[in-house]
Design a protein around this nucleic acid. Structure first.
Lengths: 401, 401
DNA sequence: GTGCGAATCTGGAACGTTCCATACACGCAC
DNA sequence: GTGCGTGTATGGAACGTTCCAGATTCGCAC
């Protein structure tokens, strides 16, 4: 159905064909090659000629065709970026990558992962564009695929670990160490962790939490609640925590409403996961069971946590919301620490204490590494780890005594 | 410093040059042309040969080079998309555009607008890529620039109005009519509107609100509060509303805390606009003054609103948060309606009643229109308006009596 | 005058596709 | 047998650049 009739060839708006090198050359009375030189600003043309060529180009409104240019010169000066467009933190990363790439003289080719467009499709399209390297934000791609990909072009994995590609990531464990240290410094002892399930970085953060708790002599209070990386999953985890709290300490009802879920059933169109019944299956990935550290619920001292470290900001937002609705005051009654310092956390009304990933550094390093690989440099260590830092805002305070 | 020594030419990972058509042809024992046919899925190749070619391509890991392809075939089958990567709703739009484009046989070239990368830069990069048309999500570009752009290639403006390009947008006024109708039906009379300032669509929504109020005989209760499109601005507007409420009805303190701002000053790194002193300058764009409809504050009946329509979901989220913190129960004490039905609103813990923009329809229409233009079709009406619809969730309920 | 290195410019061969015109088989009707 | 349509396959000319090997000119030292 598309353009059956050739009589339509008059086209419209962009009527006149784009001028090419030869057009300019003809008008300036020189060869294509010379025009090419001039347009690229390379030496080898006389001052007078150069001027004539530039004038001709200007008059014709000539713009070089990047396709042809790139085809011939082999290079594309393009870095492919795969990212989850729904993920607040990925958005921050892309923002940083743009400026890092520009500084390095590269352009970015974005390819988004959406609910209906998976990573495989996203990467395939970038391969067609002949990117010189791929930067993947927190990819879920299997190790096998990643390896295969890495044989075709340099691949830099951003914000998660991987053993078969270059990696730029945050010291996740160190981040949780800082969070726990901050909370312990405020006098908290019963510090729980809502984890990220199978999400990138989750295992390390869990590990960091555990280690830090032990280091502070709080091993008995280690408490890991299955969470996830979305607001939804944070909310679920928080609700679970609330119920158990009132279970464990019946005389001290922290949540006012008996029903912690929002006031009414979800609208007809809700494709978000509905508030599933609390604590039925322990669905955290990688075999994380609740209170795994030493046995059953009896192991830690029954008291409700006075502080929570959460896998990321998005998840923490969900936690905060449930706490707020349940009438639990933050930070007076309970402190909350997020992770990422995404723009979410900075909003004045969220005002979340969090562990900041150093986005400018990470993106700069990722681009630098990609460029090194493109230039064929030998690289000594494949994994670059960037230290995070604590940003204290409004959701943490002294422990109740 | 980059690759001075040519002895490094062994390269590394991506050692063997990318396979090309001829490589595949050689391996399959056929001509380049035949391989080309097969790769494009065109008829003209025998079943057996086709299989052989595909096998060969698979074994070599062949991917066609889009640069060469596009260079030769004049067409790029590429739709450029300019969008604000920070905007939740744009993210939804891009998600929809991906599937709409795929259905139409086009690819998307994304170019993001970030705080450090403006629309001009975003569009320029797409022009170099020789996109066949441009789809711009809620662009801020000046009318003049837009016109100039439209002479170079087809431009479709998405989710806002414009008189010098094709437009696909929501019937904003109608959306607010539905919102007001919904609230009025629940018995609300004092319905306020927090507007979007200079944001795309804001003027129309304001107009729709005003008209609907009048239609329901509620002209005396028209109340427009300057807002914006971010959570931050919503929070500010809500705080302003709260203070005035307790001013106006001193005997009935809705907000529990005297200080409605979050518990502590923002962290050091906060570049979000700090909670500015309430109600100092009326900073809404386009000369919208508070309670403009008939005069001063005395004109409407002094009572606090029992319902609020908000410019968009993001802004509504900020409003909800402030209300919650102030101890005002939603929807028991006050109802809130958002706009967009972005994924934000659907989160179970936000659960926002909102006016849904029909993203699938809008994106499908935008792509269709772009394709029509590319094909040189004559277009009868440049503006396509898509009806929105109300999605009732948990933030609206009957008015207090 | 000859030789020679710069400086300037040119022609044509790539780059990896698609498109076009053609060639080769067939089978089948006359 | 000739003619012809149809389904396959091929070779080579584009597309708009860049790159490379030369060609031309010039100035200047011998």
């Amino acid at each position: 159905m598309t353009g059956t009739f050739q009589s339509y060839d008059v086209h419209m708006a962009n009527a006149e064909a784009r001028p090419t090198l030869s057009d300019v050359a003809a008008r300036a009375g020189v060869s294509k090659s010379l025009v090419s030189l001039v347009m690229r600003g390379e030496p080898g043309a006389g001052a007078e000629t150069r001027r004539r060529v530039l004038d001709a180009a200007g008059e014709l409104g000539y713009h070089p065709d990047s396709r042809a240019r790139l085809l011939r010169s082999g290079r594309s000066r393009l870095l492919g970026v795969v990212f989850g467009i729904q993920h607040a933190f990925h958005v921050d990363l892309v923002t940083g990558l743009y400026t890092a790439a520009r500084a390095a003289g590269y352009e970015l080719a974005l390819s988004a992962v959406t609910p209906e467009r998976d990573e495989a499709e996203a990467t395939a399209s970038l391969l067609q564009d002949r990117c010189e390297a791929l930067i993947m934000c927190g990819p879920q791609t299997s190790a096998a695929r990643l390896t295969r990909l890495a044989t075709r072009l340099p691949v830099v994995v951003l914000a998660r670990d991987a053993r078969n590609a270059d990696v730029v990531r945050t010291a996740d464990a160190e981040g949780l160490r800082q969070a726990v240290e901050h909370l312990a410094g405020l006098g908290h002892r019963r510090i729980a962790h809502i984890d990220g399930g199978r999400a990138p970085g989750s295992a390390d953060r869990r590990r960091g939490y555990r280690a830090a708790m032990e280091a502070h002599g709080l091993a008995a209070h280690i408490r890991i609640v299955p969470g996830g990386l979305t607001e939804e999953e944070g909310a679920t985890a928080a609700r679970r925590l609330l119920t158990e709290k009132s279970d464990a300490t019946p005389g001290r009802p922290l949540g006012e409403k008996s029903d912690a879920t929002p006031g009414r059933p979800l609208g007809e169109k809700s494709d978000a996961t509905p508030g599933r019944p609390l604590g039925e299956k322990s669905d955290a990935g990688e075999g994380v069971a609740e209170g795994r550290s030493g046995g059953g619920r009896e192991d830690h001292d029954g008291g409700a946590p006075t502080a929570i470290t959460v896998f990321n900001d998005r998840c923490a937002t969900g936690v905060l919301d449930v706490l707020l609705r349940a009438g639990v005051r933050v930070p007076e009654e309970i402190s909350v620490v997020g992770f990422d310092d995404s723009h979410l956390a900075r909003l004045a009304h969220v005002n979340l204490t969090t562990i900041a990933q150093d986005v400018p550094a990470m993106t700069r390093l990722a681009v630098a590494r990609a460029v090194e690989r493109i230039d064929g440099a030998e690289v000594s260590h494949r994994g670059i780890v960037v230290p995070p830092h604590l940003v204290v805002r409004g959701t943490t305070g002294p422990a109740r005594t």
